[in-house]
């Protein structure tokens, strides 16, 4: 469990990125922080592994106040996946995945074997182990990033818009992959995105943020959809434009689903939705 208690962060240049933020992130589930730029979501994420220290308030992981923990040690115990994968360009895929285990003194051969197993986990062909990051596609690089985040088998996995820079097709592939991995591994995942659809797809708990890290609404995707707290949430999830209000029409003898904006959302298959 991760608990934010009245956390604020003012950057040296005066920007108040987060103000009086409190939240409990339950273990072994996925919590998605979603908001536009300036909502402080990345700052909140980076406070969990002390890449950013709060100006006031406290953050606890399983009742340990993290400000008492040594940052380097803390970071090594938490997986981190970032948007541009952040892979080390001068190291091979296998070495990149094994970076943290090697830092913590795991033997080379063992670290490599574990890296290869992790490549299976994230759906990367083992033949890519000795390639360099620059020789991989964007989607493959992100998979390496995820594998690296999982390398020390952390309880907590932080993901900062990890699929933001890949094309939509690959993104949806990676999202499915993450859902599958999470079903097997059940980590405490904190996921940051600005894409509400991604948030609803991946999140057990979704936290909608306004500017300055103010919580607009917290809940399961269904709760938020069913009961948007206010106009801001309404707008953000697209309910106001009727994007979430679907109706069925008959076109050429088939039933199609159309949303409130008039956009064709899909075709209704026979029977109950699968």
């Amino acid at each position: 469990m991760i608990r934010f208690d009245a956390v604020s962060k003012r950057f040296p240049d005066g920007t108040l990125a987060v103000e009086n933020f409190s939240l409990t992130i339950p273990s072994r589930t996925t919590t998605v922080l979603v908001g536009s730029s300036g909502s402080g979501k990345t700052t909140l994420l980076r406070m969990i592994n002390r890449m950013v220290d709060p100006t006031s308030g406290s953050i606890r992981i399983d009742d340990d106040d993290i400000s008492t923990l040594e940052p380097v040690k803390l970071r090594r115990s938490i997986g981190y996946v970032m948007q541009n994968s952040g892979l080390l360009p001068h190291r091979t895929v296998a070495d990149n995945i094994a970076t943290v285990p090697l830092l913590s003194g795991v033997k080379r051969a063992q670290a490599r074997a574990e890296a290869l197993t992790l490549m299976d986990t994230v759906g990367l062909d083992r033949s890519l182990a000795d390639r360099y990051p620059s020789q991989l596609s964007g989607g493959q690089q992100q998979r390496v990033g995820v594998a690296r985040g999982l390398a020390i088998d952390p309880n907590i996995l932080l993901m900062d818009e990890p699929f933001g820079a890949v094309d939509p097709l690959v993104r949806s592939e990676l999202q499915q992959e993450l859902l599958r991995i999470q079903k097997d591994l059940a980590k405490t995942i904190v996921f940051v995105t600005h894409d509400i659809d991604e948030a609803f797809l991946l999140g057990d708990q979704v936290v909608l943020l306004r500017t300055g890290g103010q919580i607009a609404q917290v809940g399961t995707p269904a709760e938020i959809l069913a009961n948007p707290a206010d106009d801001f949430v309404d707008t953000f999830i697209g309910a106001d434009r009727g994007r979430r209000a679907l109706r069925i029409e008959e076109v050429s003898g088939r039933q199609v689903v159309i949303d409130g904006t008039g956009r064709l959302a899909g075709i209704l298959k026979d029977g109950a939705p699968t």
């Binding site: 950057f11 240049d13 920007t15 990125a17 402080g40 990345t42 700052t43 980076r46 950013v52």
Partner: peptide, 10 residues
């Protein structure tokens, strides 16, 4: 550049 540095810091 300042904006970028800030973004990185954030």
């Amino acid at each position: 550049r300042t904006a970028r540095t800030k973004a990185v810091a954030a």
